[in-house]
Amino acid sequence: MNVVVIGKSGQLAWELNDTRPDNVNLTCLGRDNINLFDEHSVNETLTALNPDVVINSAAYTAVDKAEEEPDAAYALNAEAVKHLASACKALDCYFIQVSTDFVFNGKADKPYTPDSPVAPEGIYAKSKQKGEQYVLDLYSEKSAIVRTSWLYSAHGNNFVKTMITLMNKLDSLSIVADQTGSPTWAKGLARFIWKLTEEQSQTGIFHWSDKGATTWYEFAREIYRQGRDKGLIAKVVTIKPTTAAEYSAPAPRPAYSVMDCAKSYLIIDGTTWQRNLTKIFATHILDY
């Protein structure tokens, strides 16, 4: 099976490569290998590779910077997705688009299902939702959209690695305690995506995150607890709760973005976020 992953420098692409099934011939493309902003280039590059599956993990993820660079955010999160979906349709190959919990406005009081109405706030969120809509409009018959949240791994930039770095430098941290969501180990997400590629028959929208919900504050406290146990954090740190308003980020974040993953867990079961955090710390390969 020939599989092309778009966005080779990200943490998900790394985990997709690390968990690659034996029957997969994997090609990871970065900005030097494919021009996502040119439809002809996308068509030409993918046609030459003749993929059975295309997985798009590339995204403009600088949530706050997107407010200053809307054109750049829409170009990568929406227009590039349009080009990929169109090219996949022409090649009749399976397309997986990775999306985000940010498509929801965070005003719910129970987990969002794949069918829950979207209401994105902020440029990043709106651009990702527009990318989703392109997939649904252009190639719904052979595409899957996988929304995820609070992604982390031993590679790339993410909350877990940032916390470990800061906890080894500072005596005190203030972490937002009024935003609730679900952390997601990128390796678990990669395994779910590979499961989708086995039959290439699952279409529509899927949610994938680790089991359970938490706040950024409680997530940080668990990172500290487990990090100290594993010897990754060498000093005592005071972790204080703060609010999103006090943090005052330029872009809005959903106050509640827990997603209902029941549909996905029928395909492959999930694991609690605490347990997956333990797994990543047990590897001792955090390259922070």
Rank of each mutant, 00 (worst) to 15 (best):
F95M: 08
F95T: 08
Q97S: 01
V98F: 04
S99C: 11
T100I: 03
T100C: 03
T100W: 01
F102R: 02
F102S: 06
F102N: 06
V103G: 01
V103E: 00
F104P: 08
F104L: 07
N105S: 12
N105W: 08
G106P: 09
K107N: 12
K107L: 14
A108N: 07
P111T: 04
T113K: 05
T113M: 02
T113G: 05
P114S: 00
P114M: 04
D115W: 11
D115L: 13
P117R: 04
P117S: 03
V118Y: 06
P120G: 05
E121N: 15
E121D: 11
E121Y: 10
G122E: 00
I123F: 05
Y124S: 06
A125Q: 04
A125I: 13
K126W: 03
S127H: 10
S127R: 05
K128T: 03
K128D: 02
K128E: 00
Q129H: 13
Q129W: 08
K130R: 15
K130M: 14
E132I: 12
Q133T: 12
Y134C: 12
Y134M: 14
Y134V: 13
V135F: 02
L136F: 07
L136D: 00
L136A: 13
L138I: 15
L138T: 07
Y139N: 11
S140L: 09
S140Q: 11
K142V: 15
S143W: 09
A144D: 01
A144V: 03
I145A: 01
I145F: 02
V146W: 00
S149E: 03
S149Q: 06
W150K: 07
W150I: 05
Y152G: 07
A154W: 06
A154H: 11
H155D: 07
N157D: 14
F159W: 10
F159K: 14
V160K: 02
V160A: 03
V160I: 11
K161G: 11
K161M: 13
K161R: 14
K161S: 09
T162Q: 12
M163W: 06
M163Y: 08
M163F: 15
M163T: 10
